[in-house]
Design a protein around this nucleic acid. Structure first.
Lengths: 337, 337
DNA sequence: TCTAGCACTCTGTGTTCCCGAGTGCCAAGT
DNA sequence: ACTTGGCACTCGGGAACACAGAGTGCTAGA
């Protein structure tokens, strides 16, 4: 019931509407894309497409506009991801290569993505869950205060001040540090709780209170940061666009970590290279926006997600290309460091 | 030429306009604030105030609206900072007390301020310049890689991976760590460059290349972070307000660290408790917005700045009260940790 | 110096009207 | 069976217009 020409018409409508932001009529369509048929024919096809729910008209005697369902079909079957230009590629590479630490990588990534897509970019910090311990450091501060620093293989550093139950001299701290590192070095963070479970018992009685305190802070750090930090950039790009749901709602969502998380989608165990596209009403919140997201991470497992958020009326092929490319580059950077 | 009653009229105009967002006319003024005079008298005063440039009318036969100059006079002479309610005070205290590290303090502060003022809040990270070194840590990662961690007295932690020119065994690293700490512990960050200048010469020849590498990264870290990080929150509060300069400009400014920096104002050496208010055209960029800012920091010296940004038409007494209170509490928190 | 009154000047709103874009449908053509 | 041209219809948006209401400036009087 949807022959090739009808699909071509749908594709043309999406492309035109995306670029002009105005309902597109049959005459303009027949002219601009060389469909080799008359406006009347196009109208018939449009009527069919509307019947099926792929397009709609804002009011009688206006052109047609794609529905969410129409965009969905377009993304799934009528378009292909548009690769970036060589210049863009090089720009990404040099821009990301200059990053000095994880914070910097994430900041640069989110800005880059916002600039490339002219949308709002969202990047989640690499989750601790899949990381491994690279080093645990205990730094004496005062008599009863030490700083616990946890360094992961993704370059992430977590630090906490620990208030000890007793005064501990530096040599003992050095010893404890050695013990901790021997126990945890290279282990996955998820395994840390079980690995340290019986640690106090394996130590001399006098060390146990101190170790217990340190471990409790360590474990706390792990669970506390389990809900991951998310940053965004490019909010200025929202200014031009009009959202069916108010601009206010979008801005609020951007500052709500939890909501953003849900929007980006659950971190899957799949290979990270699959692009997720959620269009309009397919989103849990923010029904008026679309989201293009994907996972990224060093090696095969997905560490976190990144993507862009924009109006339903966005250039999906270009956006998808940019998201995919940036995800690849940042994965590369993370793997290298 | 500006007698008490005229000032009272100006105050009333500002207050009314701030709360209603509509040009205020002579009748409404005479009624709502009990000025004990007739609208006609108020009109005369208004004419005088307009003559002096404190108020203006959007068009003939509309009410009056304060000019930037009018707001300035209001802030300087006609209003006083409104202290927070007890409930708000307690809310701030408990909310900030829950912070686990510096990042958390800053994040919580900026959100809190945004929520209290219903404006966009901006907080600058405590500058490294005035901080002192609490500890320098060298963490062996692989043969020729170590991580350099710098901990300051404000709880800030900077880390960098250092690629060494040769393989260095752990004991030597431990020795270097001790040397570095002996040299730098407790010193102001600004003094670090001169303190380490002759360090390589004081060490055995074989250590010099390694130390030089480490020091170069250390110095780099100091200068690189000299331009400080700034975060903001509450962008959603912009949605309702209307800015003479477009919303887009404001959002862009918020994401430009440099611009934000200039807007917050230079960090002064004054005692940090003075509030800075920049109204409309007094701002270097973003002529259509007002900024209420102040310094904060542990003890007497100003470590960084925080404030809010909103439309010129804002409730200055309340905003100033909130900014001042939050700055005090966060200073307290930083001093304690 | 303040007040009352009055004429004047605007903006914003509601109304009407009309143009044009775009549609749906039908009948004729291929 | 599909495509095409023609035609009547619908509706949004802009222009023109009138008008009520709010607010002002000015002047004369208390």
């Amino acid at each position: 019931m949807l022959d090739d020409r009808k699909l071509a018409v749908l594709r043309a409508i999406v492309e035109d509407y995306v670029s002009t932001n105005e309902p597109v009529g049959s005459r303009a369509l027949a002219e601009r894309h060389n469909l080799k048929v008359s406006p009347a024919t196009v109208r018939n096809d449009m009527a069919a497409l509307e019947e099926e729910g792929y397009i709609t008209q804002p009011h009688t005697s206006a052109g047609r506009v794609p529905t969410d369902k129409g965009y969905r079909l377009f993304v799934d079957r009528l378009s292909q991801v548009k690769p970036l230009s060589g210049a863009e590629r090089r720009a990404i590479e040099t821009f990301l290569a200059g990053a000095v630490d994880l914070d910097d990588v994430v900041t640069r990534t989110v800005r880059l993505l916002a600039q490339l897509t002219r949308q709002v970019a969202v990047v989640q910090y690499p989750t601790l869950t899949r990381s491994t311990v690279r080093h645990v450091e205990l730094v004496p501060l005062h008599d009863r205060r030490i700083m616990l620093v946890l360094i992961t293989n993704t370059g992430r550093v977590e630090q906490r001040v620990v208030e000890l139950p007793e005064v501990v001299e530096d040599t003992r701290i050095a010893h404890l540090r050695a013990v901790l590192n021997a126990c945890l070095d290279g282990c996955g963070l998820v395994n840390v709780p079980e690995l340290v479970a019986d640690l106090p018992e394996r130590l001399p009685v006098e060390d146990r209170p101190v170790v217990a305190t340190i471990l409790s802070v360590l474990l706390e750090t792990l669970v506390e940061r389990h809900d991951e930090k998310i940053v965004f950039a490019g909010a200025a790009n929202l200014a031009g666009a009009d959202f069916s749901t108010g601009l206010r709602d979008v801005l609020e969502a951007l500052e709500e970590q939890v909501v953003l998380m849900r929007l980006l989608g659950e971190t899957s165990t799949d290979t990270p290279s699959t692009l997720t596209v959620r269009i309009g009403s397919e989103n849990p919140f923010l029904r008026g926006t679309s989201i293009v997201a994907t996972g990224y991470g060093s090696g095969d497992n997905e560490l976190a997600r990144l993507g862009v958020l924009g109006p339903t009326r966005m250039d999906y092929p270009v956006t998808m290309g940019a998201v995919r490319a940036v995800a690849r580059y940042v994965s590369q950077i993370l793997a290298a460091s």
